[in-house]
């Protein structure tokens, strides 16, 4: 049954268009910038018409940046690979640690369980800069500074609380009796966790994993301080385009396009899970 009048539909259409325009325009503009040279980007007034160039992408992929002040070596593709490696490893490790922990917090109320869960969540409250200085000193003493392992470890501060709290909610939504029914039919708790709890919480785990991946991918400050150029992800690498001879807007735009592509692709692919996972309960009556 449709109760909306024509006027209402038109107004709704306009509102939706405005919202889409508001959120999509910057992306669209950056996409256009990535095919322009610095001169066409910076001309006044700006124009939608220009001669597209692949120079920015070429510079990023070959690693040779030609500026007015001379040629510069950049390792953008290496940084992109670093981002993939760091974010993926961090999320995988978080899932391995976080999903069983979330299950434990959801199902077994032990002494201090709420306190521990809250402490883990509180890592998200603290500004990262607050912990960075002591962390840098520790990492240097432990030999973890400027290593992938060290960064992946620090990324747990971002991923683990997120996964733990989202997935815990999913496990809590599953009726414990479904698991009891499975256990009483002759299965141990681990089989129950694997065969009943994990599949039922699947969409939630996927959604949490994806969110954690995006958060990890977008992280800037940890890698800026704790890693040197060859271990840094794209977020930090974009700083390299602020060169002595000016800011390379074209390359920055191309770098942004390249760096959001993986997350965008995953998000589009997992959209179904994400919507299902973040909006519905895992089990319906």
């Amino acid at each position: 049954m449709e109760h909306t009048s024509t006027l209402e539909r038109v107004l709704r259409g306009i509102a939706l268009s405005l919202i889409v325009l508001f959120f999509m325009f910057p992306l669209f503009w950056i996409f256009l910038m990535s095919f322009q040279t610095n001169e066409t980007i910076l001309r006044i007034p700006p124009s939608l018409f220009f001669e597209p160039t692949l120079g920015n992408y070429k510079a990023l992929i070959t690693g040779k940046l030609d500026t007015a002040a001379g040629s510069l070596d950049i390792a953008f593709m290496k940084n992109l690979w670093n981002s993939v490696l760091l974010s993926t490893s961090a999320v995988v490790l978080s899932l391995i640690l976080g999903v069983p922990a979330a299950y434990a917090f959801a199902r077994h109320k032990f002494r201090g369980s709420e306190d521990i869960a809250f402490t883990l969540l509180s890592f998200r409250f603290a500004p990262p800069l607050l912990v960075l200085l002591p962390l840098t000193i520790y990492f240097q003493q432990l030999g973890l500074a400027d290593t992938y392992v060290g960064l992946i470890w620090v990324y747990q501060l971002i991923c683990l609380p997120l996964i733990l709290w989202i997935v815990r909610g999913y496990f809590e939504d599953i009726s414990a009796d479904v698991e009891y029914a499975y256990r009483i039919a002759g299965h141990g708790w681990f089989a129950t966790f694997r065969k009943i709890a994990l599949p039922l919480a699947g969409p939630g785990i996927a959604a949490a994993g994806l969110l954690a991946f995006i958060f990890a991918w977008n992280n800037f400050v940890f890698a800026l301080v704790l890693a040197s150029a060859d271990k840094q992800p794209v977020t930090v690498a974009a700083l390299a385009f602020v060169t002595a001879s000016g800011i390379q807007y074209g390359q920055i735009a191309a770098g942004i396009v390249l760096s959001i592509t993986p997350t965008l692709a995953i998000a589009l692919y997992a959209q179904r899970y994400l919507v299902e996972g973040l909006s519905l309960g895992a089990v319906k009556g």
Binding site: V178, Y180, A181, R183, I184, G186, P199, K284
Partner: peptide
């Protein structure tokens, strides 16, 4: 003993059927 070793069967008040299985599979599963 854990539930698995007590050899009891139970019908739950909240039904607790396995959502991904059909009724036949749910019953046969036991």
């Amino acid at each position: 003993l854990p539930p698995v070793r007590r050899n009891v069967a139970m019908a739950f008040e909240g039904y607790s059927l396995y959502p991904p299985l059909t009724v036949r599979q749910n019953i046969a599963f036991a």
